[in-house]
């Protein structure tokens, strides 16, 4: 899943990016309001973490413009402003969540995961496709009774496909949701990782979970 952090305080920006990347998210960072708006308009982020007091354009203005242009990314406001009016204004302008600084990183992570689930209309933190089970909270995967050990990159790919289970997902979409803005990887990296993933989750003799839809992309768990 791909996140955007718009936060001008560098130490916080750095530690958030590090923590979220380690939790398996692709994270873009900016400390400037105008740049943040430009990023948010140009990419389909799953969640945007937005500070309110920013140089350039303020956080609330960014939010207003995003919603005015119809961007559907979930926005979590992360700010030191803690009054009731601030929270109400933020949420009423179209934010999906509000967290006051200082905060526990685990809580931020849980809120981000919840927003991601909401992006894909997935209420349960446990996804089951045939005998494949994915625990979105602990990021563990089982095929039948056997636990599968995936690398963070493989897990992220599987999670994205599982969130959109039954739908055809294009390479470009996978690329957009799993790779950061200035990532050096090329787009055929998606095919390589699909290969790795297949090797780990498919079992001989059982029907394939990931199918290739020629010319369009991949589909996880759809009935033929």
């Amino acid at each position: 899943m791909r996140l955007l952090i718009i936060e001008d305080y560098r130490p916080l920006q750095k530690s958030l990016a590090k923590g979220l990347r380690e939790a398996g998210f692709a994270v873009d960072i900016t400390g400037n309001g105008e740049e943040g708006l430009w990023y948010a308009m140009g990419n389909d982020y799953d969640v945007i973490i937005l500070d309110l007091m920013l140089p350039g354009i303020g956080g609330l203005k960014i939010l207003k413009q995003l919603r005015a242009k119809g961007r559907q990314s979930h926005v979590l406001i992360l700010t030191a402003k803690d009054t009731l009016e601030d929270r109400i204004t933020g949420l009423d302008l179209g934010a999906d969540d509000y967290l006051v600084k200082p905060f526990a990183f685990e809580e931020l992570l849980a809120r981000v995961r919840a927003l991601v689930r909401r992006s894909y209309q997935e209420k349960s933190p446990l996804i089951q496709i045939k005998d494949l089970r994915i625990d979105l909270t602990t990021q563990r995967v089982w095929r039948g009774r056997e636990e599968l050990h995936l690398t963070p990159r493989e897990y992220a790919l599987l999670e994205y496909l599982a969130m959109r289970a039954g739908q055809t997902v294009s390479r470009a979409e996978i690329w957009e949701h799993l790779y950061e803005f200035n990532s050096l990887a090329s787009s055929n990296v998606v095919d390589v990782y699909i290969g790795y993933l297949r090797r780990k989750i498919e079992r001989p003799g059982k029907p394939a979970l990931i199918r290739t839809v020629r010319g369009r992309g991949y589909i996880l768990g759809a009935q033929p």
Binding site: Y9, L12, S15, P102, A104, F105
Partner: peptide, 9 residues
């Protein structure tokens, strides 16, 4: 918030 999240991460 910077100190806390740096340490927690």
């Amino acid at each position: 918030a910077g100190i806390r999240s740096s340490i927690e991460v």
